[in-house]
Nucleic acid binder design. Structure first.
Lengths: 192, 192
DNA sequence: GAACGTAACACTAACGGTTAGCCTTTTGAA
DNA sequence: TTCAAAAGGCTAACCGTTAGTGTTACGTTC
């Protein structure tokens, strides 16, 4: 069973990108609610069913890169060098994510998200998934009790969201991770 | 502008309750996804449009009491006696809410929620609204910086969700509020 | 390199939640 | 009694989403 490394994969990725680009363009031009799925599919020149075979829902078109989020967070835990303290590793990753959201390329999209209730709602559900994934990684690392790990995961993902909304993301991150560090210290009995 | 204290209000509340009861019965009998809105409306003997004038979405039928949640949490802050420490007041309220969810009457509903993805997702969005409301109350109480207040609000609402999911809600609450207390101490410079 | 299995995509039609438009009845107040 | 507004009802539609069914193009295998 050789992994399908070839043209097929490239074509699939290209189609996905074409759809995401079309959606991004239309949503930013005219607003999320004002653009229908059938319109996005037409603009990308694919069938509606094809669109839904690449994205599970309309909202997901806006969060096309979200798969990388959970991955980066969990890898910050599983792939860290031994003796590396946990919370600073998480903080580094969250900081990078927040910075990415403020980049010139991504900022308009996040403004769209912040001003569209349906997208805010979808993002809240996404955060729960990300927190669950991170919690699994943390409990796997035997870093603390199950409850403490779940709490650390949830608080970390929240910190990302709160910092993104804050006036001064950098300062907010300082404050948030000071709180998280204290919370973790109060819970984690022993850790490298 | 006399407030409408009378039969009209009672009838409205009765209709709302009738709808919520019908929905609860049908959902518990046959599962959330297997029951359509038109069916709930028929069971409650109202029009579909009437149903949607009482509840903003199908999912909201399951969380009929959610309005009380945010209210109780914010009142734990705004209506507390002077010199009452903040975090323990929040903890008492969260503890009561968690206990209520485990009661014989409410437990089946929360089991339904936990096993239905659409409801879990809706609840995540609801938590964000509750956290926002609580954060507003906290910043109004000048209890700390804006970021610290938002973080405390978010963490508190998360603690409710985490404790509800935990094997031992009581023990989980002990652990969670020890973490929150530490986080708050690390952030709040001065407070009564 | 010819045949085959399958992944990707297209098309149609429908389902289910949600809303707009408009009308009737009930209620509280002047 | 009269009247404005609230509550509810009916119809029809919109829109996201999916099932069902076929077709094409790719990768594999003989």
């Amino acid at each position: 069973m050789p992994e399908p490394t070839g043209r097929r994969e490239r074509k699939k990725a290209a189609t996905r990108q074409k759809i995401a680009d079309a959606a991004r363009r239309l949503f930013l031009e005219r607003g999320y609610e004002e653009v229908g799925i059938r319109e996005v599919a037409a603009e990308a020149d694919v069938a509606v069913t094809t669109l839904f075979s690449h994205f599970p829902a309309k909202e997901a078109l806006v969060f096309a890169e979200d798969a990388g989020f959970a991955r980066r967070l969990t890898e910050a835990v599983t792939g860290r060098a031994p003796d590396t303290p946990l919370v600073p590793a998480l903080r580094r990753e969250v900081e990078a994510l927040v910075r990415h959201c403020s980049s010139d390329e991504a900022a308009p999209v996040y403004h769209l998200i912040d001003t569209t209730p349906a997208l805010r709602q979808y993002e809240a559900a996404m955060r729960q998934r990300h927190a669950d994934a991170l919690a699994t990684a943390l409990t796997g690392a035997r870093a603390g009790s199950a409850t403490a790990c779940r709490a650390l995961a949830t608080f970390t993902v929240d910190a990302y969201a709160l910092a993104r909304d804050a006036d001064e993301p950098g300062a907010a991150l300082d404050e948030l991770f000071a709180m998280i560090e204290a919370a973790w210290a109060a819970a984690g009995p022993g850790r490298p």
